[in-house]
Design a protein around this nucleic acid. Structure first.
Length: 365
DNA sequence: GGCATTTGACCAAG
DNA sequence: CTTGGTCAAATGCC
């Protein structure tokens, strides 16, 4: 039994829907897998070049804002309704229709040290009490880009950071009004390239009618109307954001999401094959040219660094076991995910979900 | 020129 | 020492 969350059923088969446990319990971290048909040669060569240009990474949907994306500012969904929006089969709350986001779940007090430490640090800085940041899962609706629109106009991005054991950068936003301390952190989930974890820290002090126009919420109601609250026991506590989304909708979403997960035009992704989590995945950092290499284990029970050698990834045999970290004869951890990091602020992740029977050898020359 | 993002550097916490 | 969070100069777009 992987989970019994009330949000189960909103996600494709194979997903771990126990969202607020997976960060700390990698054993439950079942990620969607993409079948990569023929990207390995190009990938292999890319690993030995300079880090990819930022825009070449980020325009392919790993969650990092493109450098030259033509001002990836927040669009105003009221003034620019997206084409095709009205044809959606999903029944949305009237207030929700103009958002580019579906909110899937929220936890006002998740067991999540990474987030809470940041929030608490922030709280201490201002002499406040222990913070309880709200963590919201927000999903971009089909065809949308950028980050989810949460109804607030004035988020200003002030940072971007690669996060350990995550394939995606975390973006840091704060209210553009100086005196307002509201912040949020936005990060793509590994399991779904259109699903964002949005952590809200602090409250807006600028949302009154007298506040600067850029710092006004368009509607708080449209947000609250679409939340699904997930308690610590995983039970639902109201909200009906996705209750009207049909299975067919989810299936279609899922295909779109997986298609969007391909990074770079040289990746060919088979999105028709169902996800099978074969076990573990690993990562690699480079230590050449100002970035550092290390193998590490991602998403499994241990977080042990297996090797720090700057060497090629190797083919490995992966068994059926759920919990074993597979190693080859030399004891090197094998990998099927490549992290490419040129600074701690941006990294690209090449997740190569594959059929192990056809996995080409990646050997040193 | 103004504004928003990018990104290297810095800092604090663990 | 590692990692997450923040700052601020550089950069790009309108």
């Amino acid at each position: 039994m992987r989970s019994s969350s009330a949000v189960e059923g909103q996600f494709p088969p194979g997903w771990n829907t126990k969202f607020f446990d997976v960060t700390n319990h990698a054993k439950d971290h079942l990620s969607p897998r993409l079948n990569v048909v023929a990207p390995l040669n190009s990938l292999r060569s890319s690993l030995h070049k300079d880090p990819l240009p930022y825009h070449s990474i980020t325009t392919k949907g790993n969650g990092c804002t493109p450098r030259n994306s033509g001002s990836p500012r927040f669009t105003d969904p009221f003034s620019q309704p997206p084409p095709g929006e009205g044809s959606s089969t999903q029944q949305q709350h009237p207030h929700e229709q103009n958002l580019n986001t579906r909110l899937l779940a929220v936890d006002s007090n998740p067991p999540w040290p990474r987030i809470s430490s940041a929030a608490n640090s922030e709280a201490r800085k201002f002499g406040g009490q222990k913070a309880k940041p709200g963590v919201v899962l927000q999903k971009l609706n089909d065809g949308k880009r950028g980050i989810p629109d949460d109804g607030h106009r004035g988020w200003k991005k002030y940072g971007n950071k690669a996060i350990q054991n995550s394939n995606h950068c975390r973006g840091y936003y704060k209210c553009s009004l100086k005196e307002c301390r509201a912040k949020k952190m936005v990060q793509l989930t590994d399991r779904d390239p259109t699903l964002f974890e949005v952590t809200y820290v602090g409250k807006h002090s600028c949302s009154s009618s007298t506040a600067h126009p850029r710092c006004r919420h368009r509607s708080t109601q449209m947000l609250s109307s679409s939340l699904v609250h997930v308690g610590s026991n995983g039970s639902s506590e109201g909200g009906q954001a996705t209750s009207t989304v049909t299975k067919e909708d989810r299936a279609e979403d899922w295909k779109t999401q997986r298609a969007a997960a391909s990074i770079g035009t040289n990746l060919v992704v088979d999105v028709s094959n169902p996800i099978i989590d074969n076990g573990w995945k690993g990562g690699k950092y480079s230590n050449e040219h100002n970035y550092s290499y290390s193998y590490f284990n991602m998403g499994m029970t241990t977080s042990t660094t297996a090797s720090t050698a700057s060497e090629e990834p190797k083919q490995c045999e992966v068994g059926e076991g759920d919990d074993d970290v597979d190693q080859d004869e030399e004891g090197d951890v094998c990998m099927d995910t490549y992290l490419h990091q040129s600074s701690r602020h941006h990294q690209a992740a090449y997740s190569l979900w594959h059929d192990f029977d056809t996995y080409p050898t990646l050997s040193t020359d």
